[in-house]
């Protein structure tokens, strides 16, 4: 068991983390490349002000939640979930050591109690999101298998991490729980670039997708000419 834990903490962690970084880097590169090389100077003409204020309105999205009030449960839990999912993995005291070893610098840490409360809230939010997907008909109708799988994939590291830190609640041995925690987190790292979790970076490009109304001059002509020749008719 100890050997497994050492393996998961060491090489496996490094490899999965590397896959995540490279995968996200690829997304970032392709998107930036697509924008800069294809759009070029037209980027300057995009309605950046509007894009910026629109995006800013999502930082504290009270208006969005009030306006589309039929999704209140989903929207609120999804918002709170994101706080937990960013803060706990990055700033938990036990994780700080890990980041320091990997990245070489020191992140600020949060207290154990705060971390515990945040974790419980995050788990509750995750379960709510899962419930919404299962029981709200319109949402179930469009959900894919991956939408459920990913919720569980995020849930396991949180749940196992919490149980590992609470010996009185932990039904199995600490080592087994810790190993589950490590492996599930590493699985998540690998999944991130290949699934919708890639919105960690792609989110920014979605938000500015209004720039794609800056159409390329002459492209329409080229498309019609290629398909129907120079004499293309309406």
């Amino acid at each position: 068991m100890d050997a497994w834990i050492e393996f998961a903490k060491g090489p496996l962690f490094a490899v999965s983390f590397l896959i995540m970084i490279l995968g996200l880097g690829r997304h970032l590169f392709l998107q930036l490349d697509g924008l800069v090389r294809r759009k070029g100077r037209r980027l300057l003409k995009a309605p950046w002000r509007k894009i910026f204020t629109d995006s800013l309105s999502w930082v504290i999205p009270v208006r969005h939640i009030v306006d589309v009030h039929r999704t209140v449960l989903f929207s609120v839990s999804s918002y709170i979930f994101h706080i937990g999912v960013i803060v706990v993995p990055l700033f938990l005291a036990d994780h700080i050591i890990l980041w320091e070893r990997l990245l070489g610098f020191h992140l600020p840490k949060i207290g154990t109690l705060l971390a515990d409360v945040l974790t419980v809230i995050t788990i509750a939010c995750l379960l709510t999101l899962l419930g919404c997907r299962l029981f709200v008909e319109r949402q179930r109708g469009v959900s894919r298998v991956s939408d459920y799988v990913l919720l569980v994939a995020v849930l396991i590291p949180f749940l196992s991490g919490f149980l590992a830190s609470q010996p009185q609640l932990n039904p199995i041995s600490w080592r087994a729980m810790f190993l589950i925690h490590l492996l599930s987190a590493e699985l998540l790292f690998v999944l991130i670039p290949f699934t919708k979790l890639a919105h960690i970076v792609l989110f920014f490009f979605d938000r500015i997708s209004q720039v794609h109304w800056q159409l390329r001059p002459g492209a329409g002509d080229m498309v019609s000419e290629t398909l129907y020749g120079k004499e293309a008719k309406v």
Binding site: V136, R144, T195
Partner: peptide, 13 residues
């Protein structure tokens, strides 16, 4: 399309 393909979330808002 690359970005939308990856991220669309089916949240139903």
């Amino acid at each position: 399309l690359d970005s939308y393909c990856t991220t669309n979330n089916k949240c139903n808002r």
